[in-house]
Design a protein around this nucleic acid. Sequence first.
RNA 1: GGUGAAGUGGCCGAGUGGCUAGGCAGAGGUCUGCAAAACCUCGUACAGCGGUUCGAAUCCGCUCUUCACCUCCA
Length: 488
Amino acid sequence: MSSSLHIYNSLSRTKEPFEPLNPKLATVYVCGPTVYGHAHLGHAKSYVSFDVVVRWLRALGEQQSYKVRYVQNITDVGHLTDDADEGEDKIQKQAQLELTEPMEIAQFYTRSFYEDMDRLGVQRPNIAPTATGHIPEQIDLVTRLIESGHAYASGGNVYYSVDSFEGYGKLSGRTDQAALQAGGRVGQRSDKRNPSDFALWKKAEPGHLMKWNSPWGEGYPGWHLECSAMSMKYLGETIDIHGGGMENKFPHHDCEIAQSEAASGKPYVRFWMHNNMVTVDGVKMGKSLKNFVNLKELFHTFDPLVIRFFILQSHYRSPLDFSETAIRASQSGFEKLQEAWKRLLEAPEGRNQIDVTPFEEKMVAALNDDFNTPVALSVIFEFVKTLNGALDRDSLDSASKGRALALLDTYAGDVLGILKSRAALLAGESGQSAQTLDEVMQVLLELRKEARAKKDFATSDAIRDLLLQRGIEVKDTREGATWSKKKP
RNA sequence: GGUGAAGUGGCCGAGUGGCUAGGCAGAGGUCUGCAAAACCUCGUACAGCGGUUCGAAUCCGCUCUUCACCUCCA
């Protein structure tokens, strides 16, 4: 396994050693959501995966003295419901359904998105630019492309001329435009020179709500444009990592490459990362299929961190199949980890020693190997087994306990983000009420202890059973009784 | 039709030329007033057919099957 970070680059289709172009700053751009609906499990997989990427880069950056700047856009310009040329503006359509302004829709679902991501423990990007906030930058980019002969205006629209850019389609492998068109799905439009040309600027049809003035008349930007404009603005003309969903390889990312490289004359992205899709009971989850798993609904049944854990149990480049049984299994595993963490936090001083080094080495190797979170998790569980074994015998001496705490805190906590806080472990509530509840519970456990000392098991079992009915589980351990809230 | 990915034990899911993935579920055991937890032991899995090799689930070829993208989608 590699001792330094290697990332699978979708462009070269190999794992390559990673170091930032600028030794002081690693630049990461990830395609953000189009905000016209609540986030679903696919968003969760994507943003949790890239969250771990960024967290691990930050950890490495601390050692190697570079900063990470993470940009994730919010697409709040509608774009279109069917293809790049026809159909309705998605946000406008939703606005009409909800009898409101397009911008109100965008703002509402932006907030909803961050609420869900926060609950999943996804750290906010450093910069979250919106497409509507960067219209001048996008117009400027279009202008540059026209001036350099890569784009042409036609009837109020501006199109990118695919023929003007050698290697168009190199990311997705779709370089043969004639073959593509023979496939018959590329829309034909009279004002395009080549059917594969794509829109940089769209003329606003009558009744279109989101529109801006431009040198080509009233209109709105094409749907690939914002990522190029905003990533170049905030991260420079060549960025280290660009991430997104696999379904965006073509056409979105190929178009981004064509636009950006034609404008700057420099490589646009050094490492392309693409995460794989979520299926539900073996079937693709998609907007058109209406089978997507809404996160807010899922959170009613499962702890958001269980979802996160479930996602990280598979590799980001593998498809993830969601099913009730699969996530239940993850929930049990997740709880086992939290139990061990809680037990370690509360462990009294003992005599056993534990060496965390081999675990840490394996963990680093796994994360360095293209962010292999499933292997990292397996190392955590190996460690948990070792830890529990030591705790079963005679706890840990204080140095070992410190190292064990640091290991879990760093890798399961800071990097993977799947460790509950102490307060959350106790009650899943705010710190103050958790503390109060804990104090009350200590009284009950003391009474129960007295009953057990008198061999009054009827009373002790009654206390335990009655608490369990209220979702509180009591366990007797060699160090005394502990309690925790149980999911229904 | 074109471009890719993949088929692993009951389920999920890593790995990859010889050395334990891991989680869940299941069986037996230790501990315990009981329960729970934890720990120990138990599965001899890699779609099929050929080939390369001392040795292949891992490399090559063929076959079958599944999935994604080519249309908005993370």
